[in-house]
């Protein structure tokens, strides 16, 4: 592993994405990517009493799906890197509660998942770890509740209000002979370009303050 330039790390030992899983909600089911998801859930509550509990269930089920697909038990996972949009990464914490895997909680807003991949691949590249789990979740309803207004409020969304995904994704990183490999990671810097419209999260979070983090495969 060595540093290239100012921001990039080159990984020499080919950390590999061994398996992936994604479970999503009803809006994603109707989107163009529907066929790539492992499961689409039509009920936004997924049988739970609150959206936060539903989000926890999304990440929990996604993790058990990816473990099942990779045929790895949770005791073979060295560390998990997980995060979400809610206070104290609450859905990841509750989602991971029963897995008994050492846990790193991350918050990087939109970049949380790639942040997890970056850090996890460094752990694999170091040679100290065999399997790393990276996971993230978000839920449209819990995010609206936390960052905007209650869903029952009769207001109008501005045309630049983005829709938060309802769903969760997980990958297992390890080492294998065939890829996809993670070869380089380039974390972004915070760049504040002064967009103050809190509803326009893509411009104010995503690129107004750039947190563009790249993993190069």
């Amino acid at each position: 592993m060595k540093k290239l330039g100012k921001q990039t790390l080159q990984l020499d030992n080919k950390p590999t994405i061994l398996n992936t899983a994604a479970i999503v909600g009803p809006k994603e089911l109707n989107g163009p990517l529907a066929k790539y998801f492992d499961k689409c859930v039509e009920d936004e509550f997924w049988g739970e009493a609150s959206w936060e509990k539903a989000e926890s269930k999304f990440i929990k089920e996604t993790v058990s799906t990816v473990l099942g697909k990779a045929d790895v038990s949770s005791s073979d996972i060295d560390y998990v890197f997980a995060g979400d949009l809610l206070n104290q990464c609450i859905s990841s914490c509750f989602g991971m509660r029963d897995t008994n895997i050492p846990f790193f909680g991350l918050f990087g807003a939109c970049s949380t998942f790639v942040e997890g991949l970056c850090l996890g691949s460094v752990f694999i590249d170091s040679g100290a770890c065999k399997n790393i789990l990276c996971a993230t979740s978000s839920h449209f309803c819990s995010a609206e509740k936390q960052f905007r207004f209650p869903l029952e409020l009769g207001n109008q969304r501005t045309p630049t209000s983005q829709w938060t995904v309802t769903g969760a994704g997980a990958v297992i990183l390890g080492k294998a002979d065939n890829g996809p490999y993670i070869t380089h990671i380039t974390p972004g810097k915070i760049v504040d370009l002064g967009i103050k419209d809190a509803n326009n999260m893509r411009c104010s979070n995503g690129s107004g303050s750039f947190i563009h983090t790249f993993c190069t495969f």
Partner: peptide, 28 residues
Amino acid sequence: NRIGKFAGAGTIVPITGFANSIVSPAME
């Protein structure tokens, strides 16, 4: 909320909007 999405200030400004603004967080 569906009427409000369509009517905007038409239902938010009268007393109906004020009632909704208290009930909706209570529900949420």
